[in-house]
Design a protein around this nucleic acid. Structure first.
Lengths: 185, 185, 185, 185
DNA sequence: AATGAATGAGACTTCATTCAT
DNA sequence: AATGAATGAAGTCTCATTCAT
């Protein structure tokens, strides 16, 4: 009979599907993310998909929510270690250059989320919350306008990184931050 | 019976398809851009699509190329009118706040392009050329590092605009620009 | 209105499709064998086709494999009954004249297979295996060169039968066989 | 303006199309032979196709007719040089082994024709005439039954050649012919 | 006489979802 | 609770043919 898929009792299958969904998004874009592909990536029967999730949209929401949370958490940890303005700005620069968009995968997923949110307001709670957390990590150290500008620069530089062949010159992020944070005269 | 489509001889049909494609992208995203939808939007028979374009990809390329060119041209015109550093920076701020992402439509299309380019290198020539033109408008006035940072801020602020419910406070772009342009001491 | 197809649970649907495929090949040729036609012939929804088979090619392979197997099995049975050289050669002649290409349908399908295999090597395992089985039925009775020649004559006469208006004169196959089998001097 | 295809006045364009059609048949089979592909292969505008030929069928008929004529003519020339039975049989063997199916291209086209004729009687005049010419080359030397059998063996051996990986052992055709031609006792 | 443009039919395939088991 | 089978809609693309020029 050739072992007919013995699975059964597979907790964290739901989790696995969400992770697989992010992989598929990174590879094929939201456009190319189908139940079939995610099921294959998660090694889960197709019928499982609509059993666990109400539809593609529900799955996308969960996937992007998890992604944003993971990235934001990492950023928070980095920033939490900073004891001074100087250290905070260094940490923020490191975030830009290393963590957040360190991998092409994360960068692609981020853009897929932005694009989805740009067109469909119902996804904006995810991006809004994410950006709020990012700014919150800065607010112990700088005023609110500066925090907004630093976050904008964060986005801007990572777009450049995504869309250029050659990497930006090292230190660019730190330089941008230095200019944006006006020294008290 | 609804006139059985007598058309024939329809010059600039190709052009019309490209414009319709941008409309469809704005409304449904690249994900939702199908031959059918574009054909309907351009009021053209379905068979026309693959007659004029080698496939969806070729059409997307042409559409995004046209879009980027239009937006860049507009920016160039604005900047060309500037006679001093001050005027140039004002114009650049106006670009950010009014033109480029003045409409939700343009903003959505821009993000769709960025997302596509992030995942698929073969679209990056479009974004690279666009950014180069944007930077070139600045370079009569500021050094090259500053130009890069201003362009990054341009992107960053427009992302924020795209992804937030409430508009940013007026003057934010101008403030950001002022901080990034180092005054000659 | 016409009952909206309540089907569901239709085991051996896969089998039915394969049989229908052979019918379609016989009527329209491989050239004219489309998912649509086979689906209609098997009374199965179009979507069923690519659900059960990876594509037209996979379906053709299965269909031709089944066909070759059926024909070869029939030939083997006939030959197995032979107890002497004489009986074996009579049986082989009967094969040529009656069974194998007895019907126009089988003959057409055979040629479609040959043609496909001539152009595309990946189908040659089917024809090679079929011919090997045919020769194997002869080898208890004649040497290997003679077996090859008898098989070739088998093919040659059936081509003639396929491509001529008038049937060949009866007994021609038996005569050919007699000449090819060298009497031990 | 980039030379807008200066053609005009292109005699033997019709001829060129027919030859191109045979090339396309060899590569893609009758199934894959479309106006478009033939037009491309002949470097002729698409509109030219239905201008010169009444449809695919008319073109196929002309192409196969030309092909059969060429092959038959070659065989006739070879046989015409024979002065004795021995020489004639040698020439016939050479035909089988070298000319007729010397190239995979010719072999494939031949099978495409046979298959078409097997299913559609209106093509059988081509095959019937071809075979008649082949037999006619033999009839100065052997009786009519023998001529039929030799021709059948011709077909049979070439099928084997088409459908096997390894070439048949050299001399097989000559051996087959020797057996079929009964020595006058 | 010749052809580029046009188009509706139909090819294969992928899909989200439903449902009997 | 879980899933393999099923299916109609819609996707992209190719095609033979028509027709205005």
């Amino acid at each position: 009979m050739s072992t007919p898929r013995p699975r059964r009792h597979d907790p964290d299958r739901r989790d696995r599907i969400i992770d697989a969904c992010l992989d598929v998004i990174a590879e094929h874009g939201v456009a190319g993310t189908s139940h079939r592909r995610v099921a294959a990536a998660a090694d889960v029967p197709l019928g499982s998909m609509t059993y666990h999730f109400d539809g593609m949209d529900a799955l996308l929401r969960e996937a992007f929510t998890r992604f944003a949370d993971q990235v934001a958490t990492l950023a928070e940890r980095r920033m939490a270690a900073a004891g001074s303005l100087e250290e905070a700005l260094d940490a923020f620069a490191a975030n830009i250059e290393e963590d957040v968009f360190g991998t092409q995968r994360d960068l692609v997923i981020t853009h897929e989320l932005y694009t989805l949110a740009a067109r469909r307001p119902e996804y904006r709670d995810i991006t809004t919350a994410w950006m709020a957390r990012t700014r919150a990590t800065l607010e112990p150290f700088v005023d609110s306008t500066t925090a907004v500008l630093l976050d904008a620069m964060n986005e801007g530089l990572s777009i450049h990184r995504a869309l250029h062949q050659h990497s930006p010159r090292p230190g660019l992020a730190r330089e941008a931050i230095a200019r944006l944070v006006r020294p008290a005269l």
